[in-house]
Design a protein around this nucleic acid. Sequence first.
RNA 1: GGAGGGAUACCCAAGUUGGCCAAAGGGGGCAGACUGUAAAUCUGUUGGCAACGCCUUCGAAGGUUCGAAUCCUUCUCCCUCCA
Length: 408
Amino acid sequence: MANAFDVLEERGFIEQTTHPEELRELLGKESVTFYVGFDATAPSLTMGHLIPLMSMLHLYRAGHRPIFLLGGGTTMIGDPSGKSDMRQMLTKEAIDANVESFRRQFSKFVNFADGSAILENNANWLLDLNLMEFMREVGRHFSVNRMLTMETYKARLESGLTFLEFSYLLTQSYDFLELYRRYNCRLQMGGNDQWSNIIGGYELVRKVEGASVYGLTLKLLTTSAGTKMGKTEKGTVWLDPERTSPYDFYQYLRNVDDADVELMLALLTFLPMEEVRRLGALKDAEINRAKEVLAFEVTKFVHGEEEAKKAEATAKALFGGPGVAEDMPSTALPRAVFAEGMDILTLLTETGLAASRSEGRRLVQQGGITLGDERVTEIDYLVTEAEFSGGELVIRKGKKVYHRVVLQ
RNA sequence: GGAGGGAUACCCAAGUUGGCCAAAGGGGGCAGACUGUAAAUCUGUUGGCAACGCCUUCGAAGGUUCGAAUCCUUCUCCCUCCA
């Protein structure tokens, strides 16, 4: 079997590591326990979380033992990395709820029952720490002088940094120490923005325990343009189907930049690299084929094969020609209201395609709304029952947003 | 505790001799054209509504005024320096 380190490297996961040679050797000769921490700042995992998840699964498949560390404790502080402002403090209740939903979501991908993978929560050891003991054991190993030179803090020195956030590094570093002691955890992985936090833990374990542990950072899911992927402005792409429907999830991937397809196939699917490279090499319109594979594979992984097929069928029906597909967002409205006719603006707000009547008005005026095959040009256009076929009517907003109105 | 500076729309950021401010500019978003459901580019748009007008908005609450993002008072939060 290929060395797991090589697998991660070939697929483009690795950004930086401490002692790459040693780590590779270690992963090649024994089963290693490793961990990735997840801050519980949101109520659902996002597409961005797939990178660490996939990297963990690659190692898992190679026989190593992953620890999914939920940040029930560290989230009480909030990681200042990459943040220009103070993080909003979450209530204990909110954090617990987030941790719980992460737990459920991870359980869909990994079986924690047989001990081959571990789900932990750092609230278990951070919440009851004694400050003085903690400072004497952990605090003394951290040089403030050095911390102040770290990118994370340097940026914040301008805008303000409280001790609360400054201390984040210590708590995350302590996690590594705790996991080393409890599970003989030897490796911490995380997004590249976690480099300084990871180094913090790595140095702490080496100093306190004199043990050889390692750190590795993963590529962040960004577009070639540099913006964070899976966290669109419009809203985050969530793994929770209630927040981002499987269809929207599929579409997000279906529409990635040409330049990003190959990398995303490598990072987000288990397809063999030969296949990834073949698909990534497709040119011009052909590369759409690669995007279809990407969208299907990842949707299947996250939402299951059935949902992936539905999303794919819906997309093909919509973009391949006229057609109404099952798996399209829809709104049911009573048949009676269309006897008199419903004005287009009301219909747009009812279906959620427009947040307000003003927005709907703009959409219509700019030619962005299509009913069936007819573009709507009048803002006071009345939609009547006659326009429905088979009790259904498809409204299209722009080129890609479809919504189905069903009479009931 | 003392002195000073700041808080503007999704984000950044103008505006503070009171009216011409629903509030410049940039980013982002949305829509149109072009395309391959891509990128880049160009154009329009981006508080709400019964819409050539009306209503709500410039940290919060009051006040002055015919009229306030702009002036006054109190409060909240943030930053810098001092202790």
